[in-house]
Write a protein that binds this DNA or RNA. Structure first.
Lengths: 167, 167
DNA sequence: AACACTTGATTGAAAGTTCAACTAATGGGT
DNA sequence: ACCCATTAGTTGAACTTTCAATCAAGTGTT
């Protein structure tokens, strides 16, 4: 080790790994930091004003859009990219809060559907204001239309590449 | 409620909240899904091959770049946007694994510095290959240079707007 | 010097997430 | 009809993160 207080891990080519250029690295770090603070801020706003986490909110949005406001557990898990176990626990909490209900699926004896209650819908309708305002002021107001569209294309491709994995 | 199976929460203007257009909503959902699967995949790769989480990895990178490979707890917390408490717990775990050391700060009796050990540096040097490969194949290969630059600008502005908040 | 006030960091409990093991129902294939 | 593999969902323990409380050391005021 001797006299290398900070080996330049990020700029050198080692083995067969193509490293990141300085510019690429800066963008990547901005993404890491920016998406973290963005999601944290949206989460905090939602919690403070409505007692909902960002992931709970996403679940409610999906339920609100589904026919009969109901979705089966596995499908819900896939939609929001959570594990089945996580969905089970989360829905259990939301059920205890009277925000969703649980029903046995009629066509599949194993299936369970989560349903948004009227109360849950009301909670969501309020929370949506906070959320959308946040998306505007934190993301949209920080993007030109072109940049925003580019963001969409990148993320679209990433989802297509990585989206359908199991846990 | 009567006959509204799925009120159009996302397209209508309610109260004084400017809603999202269909296109904006699609981009936002792509971002939500895309950044989730991206971070999950990078995290999974790192765990599988090196037993490190993405946030642990970020901490090690920061330490590796710092003079004497040491950073004080609060500064480290700010750099990676974690709470102090979280940093304390995480560093405790990494210390138990022999990856970082903890030292009393010489200039401030309250201060504690975390230091990357030689072993920790070796772990990081290996993990970096996995991480950088992931950033290439999941993000860079899914972006044109222009799109990637746009991503950087957006995230840069978001960090500037939200970056300096406390917990 | 004594006071309050702020800051740095830790602690332990509560809340949330992951992981592996498990139960139960379905869908073939024979 | 019977197996066997697969799929849906749950469970509980281990782990991680959050939250509020705490302690110790620095700063500033009078």
């Amino acid at each position: 080790m001797s006299e290398s207080p900070s080996v330049d891990l990020e700029l050198t080519e080692v083995n067969d790994t193509p490293w990141l250029s300085r510019e690429q690295q800066e963008v990547w770090r901005s993404f890491l930091g920016g998406s973290t603070v963005l999601m944290d801020q949206l989460d905090r706003d939602l919690r403070r004003e409505h007692g909902l986490s960002m992931s709970e909110y996403e679940i409610l949005v999906r339920l609100s859009e589904a026919p009969a406001r109901s979705i089966r557990m596995a499908e819900l898990a896939a939609l929001v990219a959570h594990s089945r176990s996580r969905i089970t626990h989360t829905i259990a909490r939301l059920e205890k809060a009277g925000i969703v209900g649980r029903d046995q699926c009629s066509t599949d004896g194993r299936g369970v559907t989560a349903t948004l209650t009227d109360h849950g819908f009301a909670v969501l309708a309020n929370a949506a204001h906070t959320h959308v305002r946040g998306v505007h002021t934190y993301l949209l107001d920080n993007s030109t239309p072109d940049e925003f569209a580019a963001l969409g294309r990148i993320m679209e491709r990433i989802s297509a590449q990585l989206g359908g994995r199991t846990f």
